[in-house]
Design a binder for these strands. Structure first.
Lengths: 216, 216
DNA sequence: ATGATAAATTGCAGTTACTGCAATTTATCG
DNA sequence: CGATAAATTGCAGTAACTGCAATTTATCAT
């Protein structure tokens, strides 16, 4: 196991430049719009060479959206798994909210990020794409959670498929809530989404019996 | 109104080269994989200059995935709107199936396309992205259809939101079904998705009453 | 058929994102 | 302080894509 006791001047500097680059990127996008910002502009604003830029971030998008851990927050996951609340959706959204626009760093940056993401369709697209990396994990977590509340006669296979399906549904829901809160009434966060979803799905599905678990 | 009575040698040639390019693209991807195929390769295989390539297709992806009309098939839409089947999901999937991998052209190409798309995650991503253009339309169609079956006391606003939500959900469902039919049992197309969805959503939502339309 | 006209094809140069490699700077540690 | 390894950088190159000006090619009136 490689130790990581002391922060070290080196690491500190590295973290600093990473932050500088991200801030420059977000700032420039705020000022000029996503399209108009080039990597060279970000480099100039950050005082690093283009090559160094790409040492820090694999893509331009990553610098703007933040490196962001491709993992769910452990503590939240545990809470979610332990929770007995029937409102799964809220739990899931909460789970994702932590990592969506936030990295591990400062608040202002995260807020700015959130702003430009929800204001720029192209960026929202990318952000949701970026989030896809988490779905694998979400699927697993979901499976664990679903198994608890699943009836005994339900084959694990089905529960698994359901987890996968729900995980796939999440980006859409996310996108929808973002879109809603962006256009029209910017007041309430994602209140009512569940009701909406409930109503919508009752119409979507053939019979949707409320007490029977399909055992075809 | 600009007339389009005669096909014209010109238009014919144009359609031909478009097809040639698409076929070359798909063929090359089949042979070398998506990553390894460059625009220049496609151009060489099609006997056109790179500039011409980009006159026909805005992006490399478009050549591989097909230009595909960003619109739903009129006839199908009408059928869908007229239908009384409670199985909305099936209807929607059917609606989308027509345009998903198919353009207006030949079968073999469409089949090959379908193959490489479902085999290449990156391409599936792009394909679903490409489909997003249709969601606006789908949302509208959905609204029209939903309004019919909606209870009288439901505000149109809510129906509208529901349509939007469902439209956003579709890519996820599509992705799921593709994933399912790709891995594991390649037998049945998208059978059981509805049951799965029903089960999953009963768990997703808080109470999900089966007779009441939420009127918060 | 023939030449004028407009459209399509092409070449060329340029921009932007991104990569590999080799050289140089810089932090770290004995 | 000097050796070592890591980070930064420059440079050259690839690949997608765009604009513009020149050229080819289909179309159409004569």
């Amino acid at each position: 196991m490689t130790d990581q006791r002391e922060p070290g001047l080196r690491q500190r500097k590295q973290a600093a430049t990473a932050l500088t680059i991200e801030r420059s990127a977000v700032g420039l996008v705020q000022e000029h719009g996503f399209q108009a910002v080039t990597v060279d502009m970000i480099c100039a604003a950050s005082g690093v060479s283009q090559r160094t830029f790409f040492n820090y971030f694999k893509t331009k998008d990553q610098a703007i959206l933040g490196a962001g851990p491709g993992r769910l927050d452990e503590r939240r996951v545990r809470e979610f798994l332990a929770s007995d609340s029937p409102d799964l959706l809220a739990g899931i959204l909460d789970l994702l909210a932590t990592l969506a626009p936030v990295g591990t760093e400062d608040r202002a940056l995260a807020a700015d990020r959130m702003g430009i993401i929800s204001r720029t369709p192209a960026l929202m697209q990318k952000e949701i794409e970026r989030l896809s990396d988490v779905y694998e994990e979400l699927k697993e977590v979901l499976y664990l959670r679903l198994r608890r509340s699943a009836p005994a006669n339900e084959p694990p296979e089905e529960t698994r498929a359901q987890s996968a399906l729900i995980a796939h549904l999440i980006p859409g829901i996310l996108r929808f809530t973002l879109e809603q809160q962006n256009s029209g009434n910017p007041g309430h966060p994602h209140a009512g989404t569940e009701q909406l979803l409930a109503g919508a799905l009752q119409k979507l599905l053939p019979a949707a019996p409320a007490g029977e678990t399909a055992a075809t």
